[in-house]
Design a binder for these strands. Structure first.
Length: 213
DNA sequence: CGCACGATGCTCT
DNA sequence: GAGCATCGTGCGC
């Protein structure tokens, strides 16, 4: 039997809660190019009163999607090169979101491999296809134009994104977020135990971690 | 293995 | 004009 998709109400909870509860859930992306996705294994929460968050200094053109209702996709470009995908949480007006940092691929492996194919024709190992936020967005075929898309809507302008409810909570741990100059002390990163998470060349676990389950 | 660096397109000051 | 919620490569040990 098919797992149920996340409802608006689930996304409307706080970002820290949503970041934990997304672990173990299946994220699916579908459009005319095909269906692809995987199990969420690493997330980070970004709050409103949070110096590490794009929403910290108020609403701007770029971060507008963070202020939309829970379930809104927030896609932004980083370092001029990569895209990062987030899901807005809380209610409209609450500038929170969860950054999707890593998936364990389960659907559309051929699609994911093709999107990650390197100039020399080689392809990363399957478990690395969606590891790291930039790699994840690239592998799934997300684009800047997908910013603002409503994950809870039945159709969303060609691209459909769904989060399937998990059957059971995986064993998880938490630690500081990655790559931040501000707010680096807050332990708002969650990941599934046993998954390698964080980009390949970074320190294992990305710093001190705290067990949660 | 670790560290340094460049790519590249914005947004916001 | 500075600064990125990153990633791959290239180099030294």
């Amino acid at each position: 039997m098919a797992a149920r998709a996340w409802t608006r109400a689930l996304f409307r909870r706080g970002a820290a809660r949503v970041a934990q509860e997304l672990l173990g859930c299946t994220l699916l992306v579908e459009d005319e190019r095909g269906l692809r996705g995987g199990t969420v294994v690493e997330t980070e929460a970004y709050l409103q009163d949070d110096p590490g968050s794009h929403s910290f200094r108020g609403r701007t053109a770029r971060n507008a999607s963070m202020w939309e209702d829970g379930g809104t996709l927030y896609v932004y470009r980083i370092y001029g090169v990569h895209l990062c995908a987030n899901l807005a949480t809380g209610r409209e007006g609450s500038g929170e979101a969860v950054l999707l940092r890593a998936l364990r691929p389960t659907h559309g492996l051929e699609f994911l491999r093709e999107r990650r194919r390197r100039a020399d024709g080689s392809v990363p190992r399957d478990e690395d296809l969606c590891r790291g936020p930039g790699n994840l967005a690239r592998a799934l075929g997300l684009e800047a134009g997908h910013d603002g898309l409503d994950v809870c809507a039945r159709t969303s302008g060609g691209l459909r994104v769904r989060v399937l409810q998990r059957r059971a909570a995986p064993a998880t741990a938490r630690g500081p977020r990655i790559g931040l100059a501000q707010g680096a002390d807050l332990p708002l990163r969650w990941f599934v135990r046993g998954e390698r998470c964080v980009s390949a060349h970074r320190r294992e676990g990305g710093g001190p971690t705290v067990q949660t389950a």
